[in-house]
């Protein structure tokens, strides 16, 4: 007679590492290393990960819903055609990752970093972020819509064909950033920083760049 308890969800994920066409929900893990997880045409829902590793993960055509990362290391990820719904991050690293044709809806993020990541054809809608870093990131053909930021940092980032619509960008740091063919439409920029930022063919529609707290050294627009 086998008295072994059935494997936990975390143990199953750890043994398989690859999910294809599956719906997985209700994982709560502390101190577990889920690095290398691959996820294709699948849905992950209601994950609460504390002090976990989630490095080198890949996801394609998948939905990640109500995923909560607290104090996690989630670097070097690759995500394509994925939807992130009510994604929460606190005190976590999501650096050096690549997001292609992804959608983030209603993200809540604090004291986390997406530094050195690349975003292509990716949309962020309805996020609330505070003290989040996007240092050295590259954005191509992306959209930020109805985003609310406080002290979010984009130093030395490069935005190409990217649009900000109806965003509140309070104290948002764009120091040394470069904007190529970008649009800010109906945005507020209270105390934001554009020190040494460069604008190439970038438009401000119903957006007052003079709300910024620091415009020293900007290039490409007349102040």
């Amino acid at each position: 007679m086998n008295n072994r308890p059935p494997p936990t969800l975390a143990e199953t994920l750890l043994s398989d590492r690859t999910l294809t066409g599956q719906n997985v929900s209700g994982l709560q893990a502390v101190g577990t290393d889920l690095s290398g997880l691959e996820c294709y045409n699948s849905t992950l829902r209601d994950f609460s990960l504390d002090d976990c590793g989630f490095n080198y993960c890949r996801a394609m055509e998948s939905t990640l819903q109500k995923i909560d990362f607290q104090h996690c290391l989630c670097n070097h990820g690759m995500y394509s055609h994925c939807q992130f719904e009510t994604f929460k991050t606190h005190s976590s690293f999501l650096s050096n990752s690549h997001f292609n044709q992804c959608q983030f809806n209603e993200t809540i993020s604090e004291l986390s970093t997406f530094g050195l990541s690349v975003f292509e054809n990716t949309t962020w809608r309805g996020s609330r972020m505070s003290e989040v870093s996007f240092i050295g990131t590259l954005w191509r053909d992306c959209t930020f819509q109805n985003e609310t930021y406080f002290f979010v940092r984009f130093p030395s980032s490069h935005f190409v064909n990217t649009t900000f619509i109806n965003c509140s960008l309070k104290k948002t740091i764009f120091r040394g950033a470069r904007f190529t063919h970008c649009t800010f439409e109906s945005c507020t920029l209270d105390d934001s920083v554009f020190h040494n930022a460069e604008f190439i063919d970038t438009r401000f529609i119903h957006t007052d760049i003079h709300q910024a707290g620091n415009l020293n050294g900007v290039k490409g627009i007349t102040i």
Partner: peptide, 21 residues
């Protein structure tokens, strides 16, 4: 190397070395 400052979000040596303005 992961960098943990006393204020604000964490970062890495590479991010700061190459992209801190």
């Amino acid at each position: 190397t992961l960098v943990f400052p006393a204020h604000g979000p964490m970062t890495t040596v590479a991010a700061e070395k190459y992209y801190n303005p």
